[in-house]
Design a protein around this nucleic acid. Structure first.
Lengths: 124, 124
DNA sequence: CGGTATCCATTGCGATACTG
DNA sequence: CAGTATCGCAATGGATACCG
C-alpha cells in the first residue's frame, strides 16, 4: 500500500502550495534577509547596508513577500522622517534553526563540493 | 568581544561561496530533483514525467549543475538506444534530512501562512 | 528615511527542430 | 532515449529619478 520508492515528493508537486512557499522563503534574498532579522530587528537602510549587493527594488519586493507570508512584521516607528523597522515574526522564527542547519551543511560540505567541481571542470 | 546581535550571517555574504552553494542546491528545480533522486535513481525522461512542468532545457541545466557540485552522479548504462541514469551521490544524500525537514516545516506552517496572506491581502 | 515609478539590459524559459 | 541548438517572449534586476 505504501510506495517506498517515492519520498515525500508529492508535497513538491508544482501545483502544491508547499512548493510555492519554499520558493518564496528560500530564494536568493529571502534567506539572507530572514537570517539577518532572526538576529535582530533592522530598518530598511540597515538591511541595505548589511546586504550591500541587494538593490532597493529587490529588497522591497523581498520584504513585501516575506511580510505577506507572515514571516516578518513591518513596524512604522513614530519619528521624523519616517522610520520603519522590520522584525522576525513568530512563524518566521521557526525557520531559524532550519536556516542554521542549512548554513552548517554548507560549511561541512563545501570542501567536498569544491573538489567535485574541480573534478567536473577538468573532465574531457 | 562576541557580536551577539549578528547570527551566522557572515556566511551568507554575497561573495561567500556558502551562499552560492545554497543558491545552486535549493533553487526551484534542484530541490525537487534532489528530493526525487533521494528516493531512487531515475532516468532523464523518468524525471521529466515525475516533474511534468519542467522543460528538458531546465532539467538538463539543473542536472549538470547538481552533477558539477557532486550532488548527483550521471551513469551511462550499456543499452541501445542510450540509457542514462541519475543517482544521488554521497554528499547529495546528506541533504536528504534537510529537505525532509523543510517539507515538514511547510506542512506544519502552511495553514498559518495562508491566514497571514489573507490578512495581508485584505488590508487597506 | 523609506519607499514608488520608469527605463533598460540581461537572463530565464518554453517551444521547436534536429542528432548520435 | 538523451540530449544540443536556436529563437523569441516574458520576467528579473540594476540604475536613475522622484516623492511623502
Amino acid at each position: 500500500m505504501n510506495d517506498t520508492t517515492s519520498p515525500s515528493s508529492d508535497l513538491l508537486q508544482v501545483d502544491a502550495p508547499h512548493r510555492e512557499l519554499l520558493d518564496q522563503v528560500l530564494d536568493k534574498w529571502s534567506l539572507h534577509v530572514l537570517d539577518e532579522l532572526c538576529g535582530r530587528p533592522l530598518r530598511f537602510n540597515e538591511l541595505r547596508r548589511t546586504i550591500p549587493t541587494i538593490g532597493q527594488k529587490s529588497l522591497t519586493t523581498t520584504l513585501r513577500r516575506l511580510e505577506r507570508n507572515g514571516m516578518i512584521e513591518r513596524v512604522v516607528l513614530q519619528a521624523r522622517p519616517v522610520a520603519v523597522e522590520y522584525r522576525i515574526a513568530a512563524v518566521g522564527n521557526t525557520l531559524n534553526e532550519l536556516i542554521d542547519a542549512l548554513l552548517r551543511w554548507t560549511t561541512d560540505n563545501l570542501p567536498e563540493v569544491e573538489r567535485a567541481r574541480e573534478r567536473f571542470d577538468a573532465e574531457d
